[in-house]
Computed example of a mutant assay.
Amino acid sequence: MKVLIVMGALLLSSPLYAAQLVLELGANTRTWQTEALLKHPEARTVQIAEDVSYKKPMNYRAVPLAALLTGVQANDHLQAVALDGFAAELPAAPLLNKTGARAWLAIEDPAKPWPPLGDGKKSAGPFYLVWTDPQAGHISPEQWPYAVASIKRLSAVADRFPALLPSPDLAKDDPVNKGFELFQKNCLACHRLNGAGDAQFGPDLNIPFNPTEYFSGDFLKRYIRDPQGMRHWPQGKMPGFSATVLPDSELDLLVGYLKHMAGRKQPLGQ
């Protein structure tokens, strides 16, 4: 009986390292366990002054993401997929920075779990992409994916999902093409458009209707700024995009892309 009690005490006191992160980087694909990441030679404690998910300062044990992206080049494209289907599209260049806005993979230690994100919610773990000095790189909230399960190297969004592309008749520097870039950065992590995209989180933004077709006047812009202020929904998860994150000029470009795509609907599955 004493042996069983001692064994039970050991099990309760020993952290369980069950989580794993899959990095699908071509020839350098690797699976990392929580324990190995916590012991990584470059792991350190980082202070996040304004955490996007917790809305307060946070400290994390983290590894510079660049240290894990073996073989990744600045012109590559990555996708971070979360356990809930959130799929953040991430140009590799900012993730490889060693100065300025710097990306870190925060690792939740089972022996020191992070707080829940809200009532009835889980924490941001087991893995969370956080940034130090994000203002220096104009980092969007969508570039802070939490509950990350895998990071993949993929071809560019335009190559994978031609249904997202604006009209080829537009000039390269047309504002609609700039809006398309902003859509990839700020919207594609949660939403699809014309059925195209990998996100499993939010509704399609063109099928059956584009939001520019049912939000009149400036209501769409107001909704993007403050979703809960326009549609109060306790389970709503869409973040608001402040003018600091998405300046008015960029918001206009984003809405311009959506208006353009309302005229380029494609049947789902094509």
Rank of each mutant, 00 (worst) to 15 (best):
A27P: 13
N28H: 14
E35R: 14
E35I: 03
E35G: 09
E35Q: 13
L37E: 00
K39S: 07
P41G: 09
E42N: 10
V46G: 07
I48W: 04
S53G: 07
Y54Q: 11
Y54H: 11
K56R: 14
K56A: 12
V63L: 06
V63H: 00
A66Q: 05
A66F: 02
L69F: 03
T70H: 08
V72T: 04
V72G: 07
L78N: 15
Q79G: 15
A80Y: 06
A80M: 09
A80N: 11
L83D: 01
D84T: 15
D84P: 07
G85N: 11
A87K: 04
A88Q: 06
P94C: 03
L95P: 11
N97G: 13
T99K: 06
A101L: 01
I107Q: 13
E108N: 02
P110I: 15
A111N: 09
A111E: 15
L117W: 01
D119T: 13
G120T: 02
S123E: 05
S123K: 05
G125W: 06
V130C: 13
W131R: 12
Q135P: 06
A136W: 00
P141N: 01
Q143C: 02
P145V: 02
A149C: 06
I151W: 00
R153N: 08
L154Q: 09
A158E: 06
F161I: 04
L165D: 04
L165W: 10
P166C: 02
